[in-house]
């Protein structure tokens, strides 16, 4: 049986780690592996936001104004070693 090669990277491990959910209009802080110069943020479309990573690797990301239920995708690195974190946007509490 053919196996395509690289094993799957566990979500949010390796290059970028952070919370799994964020409130609408909020922001999150993610930790990025040393040596990474930038991360990208998108919601599945071609438009993406590139955010530089400061020394120390902690990046605060303002979440785009999207409806609750949308998943924000944060990636670091490139190619097949790209690390991917999915963050679910949830309704803010009462």
């Amino acid at each position: 049986m053919l196996r395509a090669g690289r094993p799957p990277t566990p979500q949010g491990q390796g290059g970028v780690t952070g919370p799994s959910a964020v409130a609408q209009g909020g922001s999150i802080t993610v930790q990025v592996e040393q040596g990474t110069s930038s991360i990208t943020v998108h919601t599945g479309g071609p438009t993406e936001q590139v955010i530089p990573v400061p020394p120390g690797g902690s990046v605060t990301i303002p979440i785009p104004n999207v409806p609750a239920g949308v998943v924000v995708v944060i990636t670091s690195g490139g190619g097949l070693t790209k690390s991917i974190l999915y963050v679910e946007v949830i309704s803010p509490g009462p």
Binding site: M1, P8, T9, V73, T75, L80, K82
Partner: peptide
Amino acid sequence: DFLRRLALQAPIEDLEAQSPLFLE
């Protein structure tokens, strides 16, 4: 090439397991 192998040839379980990378 890797993504195409996943799409065309790999078992569906592999494609599903690597779906975050594939969707990127």
